[in-house]
Design a protein around this nucleic acid. Structure first.
Lengths: 230, 230
DNA sequence: ATAAGTAGTTATGTACTACATATCAAATGT
DNA sequence: ACATTTGATATGTAGTACATAACTACTTAT
């Protein structure tokens, strides 16, 4: 007895579960209903009845939204709409070990792009205090010297400080989240490659030079990285 | 009858539920166990017993990991480790309506930074075909003319094409995900602001000029945006 | 009457059971 | 040797029950 082949479409997408559907429906509901953060939402039972699924399914969907920070729940208070941390969800999946080669390269290029574009924000917001701190970091390189792990730590500290100096918290966090990815890439290199422009050179430009000079300096500092991605 | 006060520790600020704990434990487990994508994982019941919680709680945690794309599940096959789509999770929470002002500004600056830094990748990968297409987009502006929505559509098309020309899929997707955010910001402006350097000017530089000229051109093209963020 | 304490109410958090469904694997028949 | 059937199994969904925290309203003592 041949079945009717319910969905003949190459047995496609059908892997969507009820929880997936409810998640989407809820997200739409939140967006279209013009709720503001802090507003109370219907209770689980009501959602379940309204959607025609068990409370269990609703909870699985809500569990996802909770993780993303889109809603918060308290014992009797019910649920309220919340502001998600847009980078928090990003952070969870950023594990170099499971990201494919292609995406790793993309992320690497993304950071290079940011670094080159940083000059404008830096010159807009740099302060004498920040530059002094940056210089301290740059100088500390000479002391610690040659060991691989120290070198990486130093790279992280210097470039991280640069991002922090832009006053852009989101960008700064974003960069620090990308660090494990680059740490992973750097360890693949055999020996340290010193660019023509050192960290101290960059600090000097920041103190005395122009935006354009800094950008050119950064380009040369990252030169060997750019060569690799060609 | 007074109970024994199970945990006296100032009753933990944290509202952490079992599902939260299990989610974290599972993520650690996946990272430390050196699984590769495609490897099979223990079944729900085993995890539940092993962790001392109900299957329900395990499913809520797994539901989150499933959404992030870290694991995939099939009916009898069980669970397998999967490659998460690193931008997918980002996309879900990117709703301009619920992102706070401060973060919106940060994202705006992030895009400006990328745009300025784009020159190097562009000159590394641009092709005659891409430039021709870009020129078509730039020219189409003159035709459609003045209406607000058309202008925004055109902006999106032009800058989107630029990102696509970098050959960096991740960056391109990232930019397109940020579009709703900027669409939101742009609609707040009363009237269109035309920079000194038009899209057609940028195309011309791409065809005949150098990296540095393009970067300067882009800076001037975005000039009024940079003025706003000071 | 005000303050403090107490009991009830309610929505989420957790556990458990039961069954549906899809899929793999072995057994069976031709 | 191949196709079909049958069973076993892990996830997906439903439903019930109770624990827990937090809000409400009531009672009681000063």
């Amino acid at each position: 007895m041949t079945k009717k082949l319910p969905n003949n479409e190459l047995e496609r997408i059908a892997n969507t579960t009820m929880a997936d559907v409810v998640e989407i429906r809820l997200r739409e509901y939140l967006k279209t209903s013009a709720f503001k953060p802090g507003d109370a939402l219907p209770k689980e039972i009501e959602l379940a009845n309204s959607l025609g699924v068990s409370r269990n399914v609703v909870r699985e969907a809500l569990s996802r939204l909770r993780m993303l920070g889109m809603v918060e729940t308290k014992k009797k208070r019910g649920m309220v709409l919340a502001r998600p941390d847009i980078l928090g969800s990003f952070e969870r999946v950023l594990d170099p070990a499971i990201i494919d080669e292609h995406t790793l390269r993309d992320l690497f290029e993304l950071r290079l792009t940011l670094e080159v574009g940083l000059a404008d924000l830096l010159y807009l917001r740099k302060t004498a205090k920040d530059i002094a701190e940056l210089e301290q970091i740059a100088k500390s390189q000479k002391v610690t010297g040659d060991k691989q792990t120290f070198r990486i730590q130093h790279e992280i500290a210097f470039h991280g400080k640069l991002y922090q100096m832009t006053g852009n918290d989101t960008m700064s966090r974003f960069q620090s989240m990308l660090l494990p990815v680059f740490g992973y890439l750097v360890t693949l290199e055999k020996k340290p490659i010193i660019g023509k422009v050192s960290h101290l050179d960059l600090v000097k430009i920041l103190k005395e030079g122009t935006k354009e000079e800094f950008r050119q300096g950064m380009l040369q500092h990252l030169e060997h990285h750019f060569k690799k991605i060609q």
